Amino acid sequence: MAVTVSTFQEMKRAGKKISMLTAYDYTTAHLVDEAGVDSILVGDSLGNVMLGLGDTIPVTMDDMVRHTAAVTRGAKNALVIADMPFMSYETSAYDAVVNAGRLVKEGRANAVKLEGGTEMADRIQAIVRAKIPVCAHIGLTPQGINAVGGFKVQGKTTSGVKKLLEDAHAVQNAGAFAVVIEAVPAEVAALITRQLSIPTIGIGAGAQCSGQVLVNQDMLGMFDDFTPKFVRRFAEVGALMKQAYREYDECVKSGEFPTKEHCYATPAGVLDELGEL
């Protein structure tokens, strides 16, 4: 059965944990979906793990639409949420609605996600009014790393906690159906989760959130440029892939591959009919 934004609300009320993973292509989305993961986030983290850009800032709307469309073709049951990239919504509520509309209309996303709290409440409200579900994102907001001076844990001071609570309530009041909380002390995220009626999805925010999200390449051990403290590797797929690539390279160079079983045979008599060439 397909997961919807209503499913998220039902799981929150029932105390059931929500699972979310990123995906950026058809094949991965299909596998994540078949595994029964509740939601797929087409994150602008594709800038890091797919495009090698170093951060999410250069990711474009066209990038997000293309990758979102690939994911939605592979996901039949998971709720697909697409990130709105940097400067696709900050400029105005109008731009926010237009760009969110592209992700739904062209990318076929079920919902969109944008970063920011109180300062983005009007954008969330405008998008929701356009009948597009919005997942908010507070705490560490990667698109704002230049403003905050890098990847730093948020909510470590009294004023910081108050700001997070204000942001959380602001996005809920604006109509967000869920909120991602990133890089926040576990006790603070638990407090936010208790106060909100919408689900919280944690990434580096402790076990008391309504659900969890990780970047696919991080949890599979495929991305080594940097590893956040909150990442748990559930497999070492990167090492397995390199082993397979090495074996392929060796077999090609030694002549062990391809063998007869991997080749097509010419029908009898065809070469004879050609005569001498």
Rank of each mutant, 00 (worst) to 15 (best):
A29R: 00
R13H: 15
Y24N: 05
E10T: 09
A2D: 10
D25H: 03
T4I: 05
M1W: 10
Q9L: 05
G15Q: 12
V3T: 06
M20P: 08
S39N: 11
R13L: 15
T22H: 01
Y24M: 04
K17F: 07
A35S: 10
G15N: 12
L21K: 00
L31I: 11
A29H: 00
A29N: 00
V5H: 02
F8G: 01
Y26F: 13
A14G: 14
A35I: 07
M20Q: 07
Y24F: 08
Y24H: 08
F8R: 00
T22N: 03
S39Y: 06
I18G: 07
E34W: 01
F8D: 00
K12A: 10
A14V: 14
L21G: 01
V5T: 11
V37M: 12
A14P: 13
M1I: 12
Y26H: 09
V32A: 02
K12V: 06
T27A: 06
D33A: 11
A29T: 00
Y24L: 05
G15P: 11
L31G: 02
Q9R: 08
A2S: 13
T4M: 03
A29Y: 00
L21C: 01
T7L: 09
F8T: 00
R13E: 15
K12N: 07
K16I: 15
Y26R: 10
M1G: 13
A2H: 11
Y26N: 13
S19I: 04
L31E: 04
L31K: 06
Q9M: 04
V37E: 13
A23S: 12
Y24G: 03
Y24A: 02
A14L: 14
D25A: 02
L31T: 05
S6R: 15
S39E: 09
V3L: 02
G15A: 13
A29F: 00
H30T: 10
